[in-house]
Measured scan of single mutants.
Amino acid sequence: HAATELTPEQAAALKPYDRIVITGRFNAIGDAVSAVSRRADEEGAASFYVVDTSEFGNSGNWRVVADVYKA
């Protein structure tokens, strides 16, 4: 099962156990969220919340930071 994305309210009520950072070329924010979901799932997380997204220069590469939560 894939890790689910939390709302800001849900994330605020929970304590993350880790923070992950992924970088890559994403065509849309949805693609980045899917990549975070896969990584969170690999780490055994039940859910995640994207904290920050930023573009690296003009290369089209993105850096996505997310907190991950157990259950």
Rank of each mutant, 00 (worst) to 15 (best):
H1N: 09
A2T: 13
A2C: 14
A2Q: 13
A2Y: 14
A3Y: 03
T4R: 14
T4A: 09
E5T: 05
E5I: 07
E5M: 13
E5S: 09
L6K: 01
L6D: 01
T7L: 07
T7F: 07
T7D: 06
P8Y: 14
P8G: 11
P8D: 09
E9Y: 08
Q10K: 06
Q10E: 11
A11C: 07
A11R: 05
A11Y: 05
A11I: 03
A11W: 05
A11D: 03
A11K: 04
A11M: 04
A12M: 11
L14Q: 12
K15E: 10
K15A: 08
K15T: 13
K15S: 09
K15C: 14
P16W: 05
Y17E: 00
Y17G: 02
D18A: 15
I20Y: 03
I20R: 00
V21I: 12
V21Y: 08
I22S: 00
I22Y: 00
I22G: 00
T23A: 05
G24E: 02
G24C: 07
G24N: 02
R25F: 13
R25K: 12
R25T: 09
R25N: 10
F26L: 03
N27P: 09
N27I: 10
A28S: 15
A28V: 09
I29E: 07
I29W: 14
A32Y: 06
A32G: 03
V33Y: 10
V33P: 01
V33I: 15
V33H: 08
S34M: 14
S34C: 14
S34T: 11
S34I: 14
A35M: 08
A35Y: 07
V36S: 02
S37V: 09
S37N: 08
S37F: 05
S37A: 15
R38F: 07
R38L: 10
R39P: 01
R39K: 11
R39Q: 07
A40R: 02
A40E: 04
D41P: 02
D41S: 15
D41L: 15
E42H: 08
E42L: 12
E42F: 10
E43N: 08
E43Y: 15
A45L: 05
A45Q: 03
S47L: 08
S47C: 13
S47Y: 15
F48H: 01
F48M: 02
F48Y: 08
Y49Q: 02
Y49H: 07
Y49N: 03
V50T: 01
V51S: 02
V51L: 07
D52T: 11
D52I: 13
D52A: 13
T53A: 15
T53N: 06
S54W: 12
E55F: 14
F56H: 08
F56S: 08
F56G: 07
F56W: 11
G57S: 09
G57K: 07
G57V: 06
N58Q: 12
N58K: 10
N58D: 14
N58F: 10
S59G: 11
G60W: 05
G60C: 07
G60M: 05
N61Q: 14
N61L: 15
N61R: 10
N61A: 10
W62L: 06
W62C: 08
W62T: 04
W62R: 02
R63H: 07
R63W: 08
R63M: 12
R63C: 11
R63N: 05
V64H: 00
V64S: 00
V64K: 00
V65A: 04
V65T: 09
V65W: 04
V65M: 05
V65H: 02
V65P: 00
A66T: 01
D67R: 03
D67I: 09
D67A: 05
D67N: 10
D67W: 12
V68T: 03
V68I: 15
Y69H: 01
K70G: 09
K70L: 11
A71E: 13
A71W: 14
A71S: 12
